[in-house]
Write a protein that binds this DNA or RNA. Structure first.
Lengths: 217, 217
DNA sequence: TAGATTGTTAATCGATTAACAATC
DNA sequence: TAGATTGTTAATCGATTAACAATC
């Protein structure tokens, strides 16, 4: 029951629309035109209208968009109107940092548990979230209806652990390991490659235009 | 002395080429054709050749590319042949996680110090990296030739801190706060918006094709 | 109703892929 | 030299922007 394929670029932009709409709601703004929103977000109004119309006509001619209605519709599109149960594989600093970040839960991402091979970490809790041994993985995933696993482990273990959680029923991998996971078609991956991000920053810093702009006469 | 503008898409791909070339080196592979590399990386050979030729002719007809030579050239393009001095603003879990990640230093990103407003964190060290109070920021940036600041602080403080470190000479911001920093032209920003990444994963999980593929007769 | 602004089609721009002559 | 494979031009594809008729 899926409509025509939505382009990757559009999906990439959706969370940003969602964020701006949330801010507008906080400011008490009730309606906004694509033009006003385009100025805030520094994109074209045309792009906003095109993007939204991939999913339906959420606006009204002569009026614009109702902020809270659109906010809600985007949350449905993103699937964050429903609860997602998450586990974190790897209870090191990065895993703990994610466990500590309460904003995810406000969006319906419930972190149910953490897992680690290191027995010294097992039993520890972070913000009430317990660290379990890997042996408990299968039972835990099945009992807690876990859909998403965050992999905050070294790349050497990432493929193996990904395959394991998938075999137990996980449908999405949030991959922080610096490796391309090559997984079955019915599993989705979202990569967060911090080292690549840092290299891009290095590129930008290195190739930045240091020249003093001449004032044209 | 800059050649023609390189597209964002190309820059985005460079670190991935770099990673695969590093792996090839480890495997002892000396030369590789765009075609072989394209199979490994699951991109087209055409794209590889086009991407690389933005920066120069690194290959040789009839031979392909010398792996270690190309690896080196890409490291120069990315600017990771030189040392970058980094500070981390925000010594919470995420800041500590980054400080703990030794791989960055192998690529020349030296984490010189962390800063926090919380006096309970000041004085603490993570892997030998000390947490300083914000008051020391100006002196530290100037004395340590700090080019890059990672912002691992709540979004409410991000803009203020970004402007502060920029005024002291920082040229690049690695922004983990969920806000669009609107900064001067001679400063570059690389965003890591984890919550947006997680929402995209939610989208993918939600819109995944659950249908059982029929076997065509 | 008149004005505003969407939804949508058409035009443009840019990025990817294909093709092949150049050349090692 | 013959074969392989690049560098590069041309063709295609997709995404963005512009334009405007539809409509609230």
């Amino acid at each position: 029951m899926e409509q025509k394929e939505i382009s990757r670029a559009v999906i990439k932009r959706l969370p940003r629309y969602y964020r701006y709409l949330g801010e507008l709601m906080k400011e008490g703004v009730e309606r906004i035109s694509s033009n006003e929103l385009s100025e805030r977000m520094k994109v074209t109004a045309s792009q906003i209208r095109q993007d939204l119309n991939n999913f339906g006509g959420f606006g009204q001619q002569g009026y614009g968009y109702n902020v809270s209605y659109l906010y809600n519709e985007i949350s449905k599109i993103l699937g964050i109107d429903k609860q997602h149960n998450i586990i974190i594989i790897g209870a090191g600093n990065l895993g703990q940092a994610i466990a500590n970040y309460t904003n995810f839960e406000r969006r319906g991402f419930m972190i149910k548990g953490m897992f680690d091979i290191n027995p010294r970490l097992v039993g520890m809790t972070v913000r009430g979230i317990e660290v379990y041994p890997i042996e408990k993985l299968e039972q835990f995933i099945k009992e807690n209806d876990v859909q998403i696993a965050a992999l905050t482990i070294p790349k050497s273990k990432a493929k193996e652990m990904a395959e394991k959680v998938i075999s137990y029923g996980v449908k999405g991998i949030w991959n922080f390991a610096h490796i391309d996971l090559d997984l079955p078609e019915d599993v989705v991956v979202e990569n967060v490659h911090l080292s690549e991000s840092l290299m891009r920053l290095s590129y930008k810093v290195t190739h930045m235009d240091h020249s003093i702009k001449e004032i044209p006469r």
